[in-house]
């Protein structure tokens, strides 16, 4: 366990350093003390971008693991269960109805929509036979497809399709100081989740076990719902969705560390942040000086890992 923490921390440090050094503009770390322009570049662009990627990855991974425990299914995350699409739909509606609304208001509207979308998914789940775990992500994907179709329909009518594109693929190239700080809120939510780590772990054992241990199961579910939808909305509003982080990262961590969140949540968050930062870095260098969005890079990587998880697991998974 110590080793996992140490490895995660080291990897994060190296990636962060790289992220600060790599970019379209010329920049050397030793210039910071002498050159005010270099310092400004560091403070307004490189550091915010690094933080944004780390916070997005960490909070999305935490949201994913919470969702997996609440749904009691390994193959779900906000992006495959309609939560992201619902957040986008809410954002779209508030953009249509009140284009000048402050970003905080937009975020809240988006979070409310995400909450409704996720609650809707949980209700759908009750109708599914419990013995078919792989039906859950299938239905989730179709459900999110429908909400996405609704959003596309509205965006098409209102000529806002390009907005959907922006929200859908997470991109950090536009991150500047003053335009990403909401993400710290997402990071704070991940910390709140850590405080309630035991409760989420117990909830993952099912309602009966939770109740037997005197836990208020409904309260935990609501806490999880609120956390996941707020994180989703915050990410969608600030940088756009990074698909599969919430799905792939918890699965990788659970393979070696299990589901005891008290021990594994820091690694989940660290790995999530590190992978998203790595995806962003890759997108920065692959067609230098142009950029490929981190969300697009992660879409390819994440889908490949998901396939490996699906094919590599025993049939009873």
């Amino acid at each position: 366990m110590r080793l996992s923490y140490l490895l995660t921390a080291t990897a994060l440090l190296v990636l962060s350093l790289l992220s600060v050094l790599v970019g379209a503009a010329d920049f050397r770390l030793q210039d910071v003390t002498a050159d005010p322009d270099a310092l400004r570049l560091l403070l307004t662009s490189r550091l915010p971008r690094t933080f944004a990627a780390l916070l997005t990855g960490a909070s999305m991974a935490v949201a994913g693991v919470i969702m997996q425990l609440l749904v009691r299914n390994r193959f779900v995350e906000p992006g495959t269960t309609g939560t992201t699409e619902a957040a986008m739909l809410g954002l779209l509606c508030v953009t249509l109805l009140a284009p000048g609304a402050p970003i905080l208001l937009k975020m809240i509207a988006s979070a409310m929509a995400a909450l409704v979308g996720m609650a809707g998914f949980l209700l759908l789940l009750r109708r599914l036979p419990p013995a078919q775990p792989l039906l859950v992500p299938l239905v989730g994907l179709i459900y999110s497809g429908i909400i996405g179709a609704g959003a596309t329909f509205i965006a098409y009518q209102a000529d806002l399709l390009q907005y959907l594109g922006v929200w859908m693929s997470g991109e950090f190239s536009g991150v500047l100081a003053g335009r990403y700080e909401l993400l710290w809120l997402a990071g704070a939510l991940a910390l709140v989740a850590y405080v309630a780590a035991d409760q989420f772990t117990i909830a993952g054992l099912g309602r009966a076990t939770s109740v037997s241990l005197g836990l208020n199961h409904a309260q935990i579910v609501v806490l999880g719902l609120v956390t996941v939808s707020l994180v989703t909305a915050l990410v969608v509003v600030t940088v756009g969705m990074v698909p599969f982080v919430g799905l792939v990262v918890p699965n990788i961590v659970a393979r070696t560390m299990g589901d005891n969140l008290r021990a594994s949540l820091p690694v989940v968050a660290g790995l999530g942040g590190g992978l998203v930062l790595a995806a962003d870095l890759f997108g920065r260098v692959i067609r230098y000086p142009y950029e490929v969005p981190a969300g697009t890079v992660f879409g390819v990587m994440g889908a490949a890992v998901f396939l490996w998880l699906l094919l590599g697991r025993p049939a009873r998974a």
Partner: peptide, 30 residues
């Protein structure tokens, strides 16, 4: 009530990936 009675319900498909010792440890949670 959790200090008064414990129930072991029928387990339908355990999805959680906990170590046995951790699971038993959660019995002390109340």
């Amino acid at each position: 009530l959790a200090l008064k009675l414990a129930i072991v319900a029928q387990q339908l498909g355990v999805a959680s990936r906990l170590r046995v010792r951790d699971l038993v440890g959660f019995g002390r949670w109340p």
